[in-house]
């Protein structure tokens, strides 16, 4: 059975002014007046922050232009192949204490959104810890998670899932 329910966008707006007189008082069977205010729920639109880029970190020939670190399934250790990248950024942050970094961790889409958010956080934390071992200061780095909400790759393949298990390093102005 299918119930194509007709749109009645204004109905709630017109709900204001409803009153009721229950016949059996124990029932309290009155038409719910979800208050005049609730009738029209206002739509909120947050501002979109925009930041300026940092040219020095965008030279494709510079290792610092690389920002992503992938993780194995159910793993939170940084693979050997990413050591040079971590070292480069760690030293850059150490040498430029005024620079600030946001690390966004991600998870593949399988399973609970909130648990995946925690997994992404574990990955961004692993990157943060590694950078701090290389001389970056705690105050320079914030590690956060995007969970499964901002996938790099949207296909349902193992390769794609692997691509989405990542930590992304962004410098102030890039996010």
């Amino acid at each position: 059975m299918r119930y194509p329910l007709a749109a009645s966008m204004l109905a709630l707006a017109l709900l204001a002014g409803c009153s009721s007189t229950p016949m059996s008082s124990d029932q309290g069977a009155s038409v719910e007046d979800r208050s005049a205010g609730a009738g029209t729920i206002p739509t909120v639109r947050p501002d979109q922050p925009q930041g300026a880029g940092l040219a020095a970190l965008r030279d494709p020939n510079n290792i610092l232009s690389k920002r992503a670190i992938m993780f194995d399934y159910d793993s939170f250790t940084i693979r050997g192949q990413y050591m040079p990248l971590i070292e480069a950024h760690g030293r850059f942050l150490a040498a430029n204490p005024q620079m600030k970094m946001l690390i966004q961790g991600s998870a593949d889409e399988r399973g609970s959104r909130e648990y995946n958010l925690a997994l992404g956080q574990k990955r961004s934390d692993a990157v943060k810890k590694a950078l701090m071992l290389l001389g970056a200061k705690e105050g320079q780095i914030e590690s956060v998670s995007l969970g499964e909400e901002k996938p790099q790759c949207t296909e349902r393949t193992e390769a794609c899932y692997a691509e989405n298990r990542r930590g992304e390093m962004l410098y102030a102005g890039e996010f």
Partner: peptide
């Protein structure tokens, strides 16, 4: 220094693996 930070990273990875 590089050797020592690499060792630290390895240690951190080992700690993570042991926690798991």
């Amino acid at each position: 220094l590089e050797a020592s930070s690499r060792a630290s990273l390895q240690l951190a990875n080992q700690i993570e693996a042991m926690k798991a």
